[in-house]
Amino acid sequence: MTRFANPKKFYNLSQKLIPILGITTLLFFAIGLYFALFHSPADYQQGESVRMMYIHVPAAWFSTLIFVFMATMSGVAFVWRHPLADLLAQEAALIGAIYTSIALITGSLWGKLAWGAYWVWDARLTSVLILLFLYIAYLALKQSMQDKPIASKMLRLLALIGLLNIPIIKGSVQWWTTLHQPPSIIRSLGISIHMSMLIPLLLMAAAFGLFFLTILLMRTQTRLLNIKTIALLKKQDQLDDPSLAA
């Protein structure tokens, strides 16, 4: 693994990987969407609106997983000082925020059909919303720090503390909604699932995961090029004006 921690090797490897990953992503999306939209049964209770699940559930799964990924990368960067791990964590943040928003938007559209309201203060919905706030906090901090060297240090800390806090938030929100008595329909989310629905769901989950990887590699590549350009410009400035080198 550590062999690819070298930015140049990583760049070359991702250069080869991106087309492969991109094509597999498209393939999985095509097959997954075909199964989800045409080849799976409509739910006997929810009707056709159940097909929203094939977008909603993978996005929701990855919304938490990406945060775990960010925190792991931040931990790696913290312990072993790999600059690449920092970049991976930072570039994953925006994708995670978008996945979380997709999960929230599809969830609220589905909620309008199933429960008759776009938003209910249910434990699961609320904790996903708070997760989105966590992503926004991370992105806002990243934005305001620009490219100062201290930025990645602070972002690491935020991701790590954020991960520690996710179970606390989930637990407390759960406790809070039982205090406020939630509408009981929501429990229908926890249905055990039939094979004909599970297969498209897993296909879509794989597609979402591959899509995440592809975009992550592309974003990290861009970021590496960006850093290299800045370094080269600095070097050029120093060559032009030696007094800057001091």
Partner: peptide, 10 residues
């Protein structure tokens, strides 16, 4: 405010 919001909700 943005950073601290998710942490203080519990």
């Amino acid at each position: 405010l943005v950073i601290v919001l998710p942490f203080i909700i519990p």
